[in-house]
Design a protein around this nucleic acid. Structure first.
Length: 547
DNA sequence: TCGCAGTTGGTCCA
DNA sequence: TGGACCAACTGCGA
């Protein structure tokens, strides 16, 4: 596989220092940038920059954490860094931690340290594209070789887009056809790395603890059960792969979203997000299992299929300007979503009055991880299914709270679930009542994450507002007092949503996607008028319920 | 232009 | 548990 952004200069002197800049790719296995940094260098500076903008405690945030990341993801990152430091120490090195705006820190290091090669994993996220351009330009002007290989994904998104005539494929099947079989070779296993060079006047930090960053235990009553780091990633991988039958028969849509003690999936997504696990290594391991079984499932539902979904979203995200927005995004339907902050707040706070939805939102806040179908349930509920709130608002909340939140995949899934792109069958709405009940009739998942409902009889646990007062009293949970009444009626709201989606789709079709702000305003006004005309009473009730 | 396929809907019924 | 039916979307390829 070619290193697409390497600026190789054969005339560079060898035997001098390299700077290995870790961002994602927090691992020593299959790390071509680290391998290249180590090769022929007299010293290597393995660096991670703590960006205060990402890590600093935000006391005003709606849940513990920084402005951009919930406490669970910060913790997961710190654990991953500590594990990386420990792995590097075994190789005769260590992780150098510095704090500050990353491009400024990098440029200072390149100035002060003995660096002839700058190595870092290529990153397609817009944040890193801009940052990397800045650092690369500086390094090139200073005569420093830059090596930036594609190793976060199996394929190079730019290659796929080029094969498709400059446009990203918009369906999974067309992606598969274009991508074909991947060709990569894993980087060699390192048995040692050159020692750390002289750091001069730079004040190097140890990997900080949550406490040192200003977070205290009281900020969170329950932490995610998933520990960060490459060692844990490889342990989880081995554990998943040990059950060959399970790997061979894996079918994503058949997974049970209500299982939480031993989740129905591998839960390797956070490790892939931070690059604690190489997606290429994971892919190769799965292929090895497939070789030794009689039959196995295939994409899109198989485990390899899941890795390819990741590749698909990375490719579309990389090739689509404004992928994370509705406006200016050519593949996104223009829909006049409402700006109901109260409904959004109820959803975020796990107080919609629908226990299945609220339990999932509690799991998000406490664990930073939920099953894929659980994510679908709450995303559909917030957007096209019930509340008709803009998908970008839900996306922001997921992005901050998920330990595996990944720019391309998170945005892709919100576009998908809101029927804004990729998927268009807006009539298929997840029921906030029957979808969960199908998997977990007794409501064990709800009882665990919403203990206020733990004594509610199973007949009522998915719709506790229908329980007679005597039952509510016996269950020590009065609806409207101890647990909220539903913020909307699902039957009414979902029918209204279907109608609105139909009208919005018709508008997009009529104007061939060129929908202006004024067009959207007009349609939004029409929705409001229709609602006032048809259901004035429920609307007032709804406002009352939210209070 | 048409027919088909599309990771994961809900409900009813046998 | 699986199939029929509901009501119907888009992208893709022929």
């Amino acid at each position: 596989m070619k290193p697409p952004l390497s600026l190789l200069n054969p005339n560079m002197p060898s035997g001098s220092g390299s700077l290995m800049w870790f961002r994602k790719g927090l691992r020593v296995h299959d790390n071509p940038a680290l391998e290249y940094a180590s090769r022929g260098s007299s010293c290597v500076y393995p660096l991670f920059v703590i960006d205060p903008h990402y890590m600093e405690l935000d006391p005003d945030a709606y849940s513990p954490g920084s402005t951009r990341a919930g406490i669970n993801r910060i913790r997961f990152l710190l654990e991953s860094l500590a594990d990386l430091d420990s792995s590097l120490k075994k190789l005769g090195s260590r992780l150098l931690v510095l704090k500050g705006e990353p491009s400024e820190v990098l440029i200072r290091c390149l100035n002060e340290w003995d660096v002839r090669k700058l190595c870092f994993e290529y990153d397609t996220d817009p944040y890193y594209q801009a940052l990397d351009d800045k650092v690369k330009n500086y390094a090139s002007a200073a005569g420093i070789e830059v090596f930036s290989p594609v190793s976060h994904t199996i394929f190079d998104p730019a290659d796929i887009i080029e094969k498709n005539g400059g446009r990203p494929p918009l369906s999974y099947q067309s992606f598969l056809k274009l991508a074909g079989e991947p060709s990569f070779s894993l980087s060699v296993e390192l048995s040692w790395t050159p020692p750390v060079g002289d750091v001069g006047r730079c004040e190097i930090l140890q990997v900080p603890t949550l406490k040192e960053l200003g977070y205290v235990e009281k900020h969170q009553d329950e932490f995610t059960p998933f520990r960060g780091g490459e060692s844990e990633a490889l342990r989880r991988l081995r554990e998943s792969l040990s059950d060959k039958e399970w790997v061979a028969n894996f079918e994503k849509p058949k997974g049970d979203p209500s299982v939480y003690i031993k989740p129905a999936t591998t839960v390797l997504s956070p490790y892939l997000k931070f690059g604690c696990l190489s997606s290429r290594y994971f892919y190769q391991c799965l292929k090895d299992v497939y070789k030794n079984v009689k039959r196995h499932t295939s994409p899109p539902v198989s485990l390899v299929g899941q890795l390819l979904w990741r590749e698909f979203f990375y490719t579309v995200a990389f090739g689509t300007p404004n992928f994370d927005k509705m406006k200016g995004n050519k593949i996104c339907k223009q829909i006049p979503w409402n700006d109901d902050d109260k409904l959004l707040a109820a959803w975020r706070a796990a107080r919609t009055g629908y226990p299945w939805i609220d339990a999932i939102m509690v799991q998000l806040r406490k664990w930073g991880w939920m099953h894929h179908l659980a994510r679908h349930s709450v995303a559909c509920f917030l957007t096209r299914g019930d509340l008709f709130v803009h998908w970008e608002k839900g996306r922001d909340i997921f992005e901050r709270l998920l330990i595996d939140s990944d720019w391309a995949i998170n945005n892709g899934n919100w576009l998908w679930q809101s029927c804004s792109s990729f998927f268009y069958q807006y009539n298929r709405i997840y029921s906030p009542i029957s979808f969960g009940r199908k998997y977990d009739p007794n409501g064990n998942y709800i009882r665990h994450f919403l203990p206020i409902l733990k004594d509610m009889p199973k007949e009522y646990i998915y719709e506790p507002w229908t329980a007679p007062l005597s039952v509510q009293t016996k269950a020590k949970c009065i609806i409207g007092r101890d647990y909220p009444k539903p913020v909307i009626s699902h039957d009414t709201a979902s029918n209204e949503c279907r109608k609105k989606m139909g009208e919005a789709y018709a508008l997009n079709q009529r104007l061939k996607g060129l929908v202006s702000e004024e067009d959207l305003r007009k349609l939004r006004r029409k929705f409001d008028e229709d609602e006032d005309k048809q259901e004035p009473k429920p609307r007032r009730q709804r406002q009352k319920l939210i209070k």
